[in-house]
Amino acid sequence: MVVGRTARRPLRADARRNYERIVSAAQEAFLEQGADASLEEIARRAGVGSATLHRHFPSRHSLLQAVFRDRVDALCARARERAAADEEPGAALFAWLHDFNAYAAASHGLVASLLRDGQDAGPPRQDDDCAAMITAAADELLRRAQRTGAVRADIRTSDLLTLLSALSLAVLDDDGTQTDRMLDITINGLRPHA
């Protein structure tokens, strides 16, 4: 599915190739330079003009969504796998938080870019698919863990995602050690007090 194009007719073969080249170039640039990578540089790497890039992706946010949709799909599939496993619900949630943390670290804070409000100005956005998918995955794991008493009942999904988003922004240049430590502190704060 092409993000933001569900109501439009399918792309011609040449337009589809341009779309795929832009997404591939953007993925490389975002991984190397973060969410603020130059859109002009992405167009150059893709071998298309800036107008072609903007025709497919009217905002930076829409391009970020396209680039990370597959990765978000995989992260959410991992949440479903953890929920379906015979794992204790609290352990499943905490393991997925580590999955999320690894994903965020590998994405150089781009997950936080997708989750936070105030994206690029531009035409009105449709539902933020990536954030909605992550929210649904986290919500299911959180509710299961709360039903078994593994997580405090007063924790909301929005609290959890805000913590994860902040964590991914706070430790962009970390080798993983501080990130893991901060996530462990977060997890301890989610558990019911003795």
Rank of each mutant, 00 (worst) to 15 (best):
E28F: 13
A29F: 01
A29C: 06
L31W: 08
L31D: 15
E32G: 04
A35N: 06
D36H: 13
D36L: 07
S38N: 10
E40F: 14
I42P: 05
R45Q: 08
V48Y: 06
G49Y: 11
A51H: 15
T52H: 09
L53N: 04
R55I: 02
R55W: 15
F57R: 02
S59H: 08
R60E: 03
R60H: 05
H61S: 02
H61Q: 07
H61K: 10
L63D: 03
L64C: 05
A66M: 01
V67E: 02
V67K: 00
V67M: 03
F68I: 02
R69N: 06
R69A: 08
R71F: 05
L75V: 02
C76P: 06
A79G: 00
R80I: 01
E81Q: 11
R82V: 05
A85Q: 12
D86F: 10
E88F: 00
E88Y: 07
P89T: 04
G90Y: 08
A92Q: 09
F94Q: 05
F94D: 01
W96H: 02
L97T: 03
D99Y: 07
F100M: 15
N101G: 11
A102C: 09
Y103L: 05
A104P: 12
S107E: 12
S107G: 15
L110H: 14
V111M: 08
A112T: 06
S113A: 15
S113W: 02
L114Q: 03
L115R: 08
R116G: 13
R116M: 11
Q119G: 15
D120Q: 14
D120R: 13
A121N: 12
A121R: 15
Q126E: 15
D129L: 12
C130E: 15
C130T: 09
A131W: 07
A132H: 11
M133R: 14
M133Y: 10
T135V: 07
A137E: 03
D139Q: 13
E140V: 14
R143D: 08
A145R: 01
Q146D: 04
R147S: 10
T148R: 08
G149T: 04
A150I: 03
R152M: 05
R152Q: 06
R152D: 02
R152T: 03
D154K: 08
I155S: 01
I155K: 04
R156N: 10
T157E: 04
L161A: 01
T162P: 00
T162F: 12
T162Y: 12
L163K: 07
L164R: 08
L164T: 03
L164M: 14
S168M: 00
L169D: 15
V171S: 09
L172R: 14
L172G: 10
